[in-house]
Simulated assay, not measured.
Amino acid sequence: MEWHFTSGNGLPGKYVSLTQSQANTYNSQTHIHSHRLTTIFWEWPSKVLVTLRYLAKGDFYSEVGDLQGISRSSVSRSISVVVAALDRKLKTINFPTSNEELRIVKTGCFRIGKIPKVVGAVDGTLIPIIAPSEAEEVYVCRKGYHALNVQAVVDHQMRFTDVVAQWPGSVHDSTVMENCALKQWLTTTDQNWL
């Protein structure tokens, strides 16, 4: 039998192989309830599966947990750990800031559009959401449904380099751009364009 321990931050820890008799001895000597034991030895691949199910379907934590036989809090922890690990590993949304990074992006963008000093392409999109219980009316977008107005920037390789996902659907794209940190940076550098 192989049990997987996780480190304190939820990342995969050491793997321990036990014979069936060792596992039986451990189980008979411990006073930990079975649900606690499940939490302690909750395997990393299962955390990934729970997260993928949640992200793909948007189910409630209770529904995802029922499918895997775990609690809502375990689902929540699994999602948090997996998303944080992916973010650290992929180093996803990072705007180029060093001179070398900017040079690479500008060169790539120039090859595509023949416009100098371009560091990315920006656009806004409306992401549908369930109506919030407070200030519901400000989330109704111009198309008549509840949404977030999300602004995103991609580089020449179509990688996201900046995302602003904090504005309700009723807010115009220009307001999102005027109030984002990227606009301030573009204004101060004067050598870069979107």
Rank of each mutant, 00 (worst) to 15 (best):
S133Q: 13
D87V: 09
N94E: 15
P96N: 02
V138F: 01
L126H: 15
L102A: 03
C109Y: 00
S80H: 10
V153W: 03
A135Y: 14
A85N: 06
L90E: 02
L102V: 07
D162L: 04
V119A: 07
H156E: 05
I112G: 02
E137I: 05
V105R: 00
V153N: 06
I130G: 03
G124K: 06
E101N: 03
L126M: 12
Y145I: 09
P116T: 02
T107V: 03
V154T: 12
H146E: 12
G120Y: 01
A147W: 06
L102E: 07
T125K: 15
P96G: 01
A135S: 14
Y139V: 00
I112C: 05
A85H: 08
K114N: 07
T92K: 12
Q151W: 05
I93G: 05
T92S: 14
K143P: 01
V83G: 02
V150H: 08
E136Y: 10
V119G: 00
F110L: 01
N94F: 05
A135R: 12
N94D: 11
S80K: 15
G113W: 15
G113M: 09
E137S: 13
R88E: 15
K143D: 06
A131W: 03
V154W: 05
I130C: 09
K117T: 11
V138Q: 05
R142K: 11
T92V: 15
Y145G: 09
P132G: 07
H156T: 02
G144Y: 00
S80R: 13
V138S: 08
E134L: 14
L90R: 00
V150A: 07
V140A: 01
E134D: 14
N99R: 11
E101R: 02
R159D: 10
E137T: 10
L90A: 04
K91N: 12
T161V: 08
N149Q: 11
R103D: 09
P132S: 04
T125F: 11
T92H: 10
T161W: 01
E134F: 14
I130Q: 12
K106D: 04
T97Y: 08
I130R: 13
C109N: 07
G113S: 12
R159F: 14
K106M: 10
V119T: 03
D87S: 11
C141Y: 03
D87C: 10
T107M: 06
V140P: 02
R88T: 13
C141A: 09
M158Y: 12
K91G: 09
I93W: 04
R111V: 00
L102D: 00
Y139A: 01
G144S: 03
Q151S: 06
C109M: 14
L148P: 00
I130L: 14
D155L: 00
V122F: 10
V83S: 07
L86Q: 02
H156M: 04
P116H: 09
N99F: 06
F95W: 10
Y145R: 11
F95D: 04
E134Q: 15
N94K: 13
Q157F: 04
C109L: 09
V138K: 06
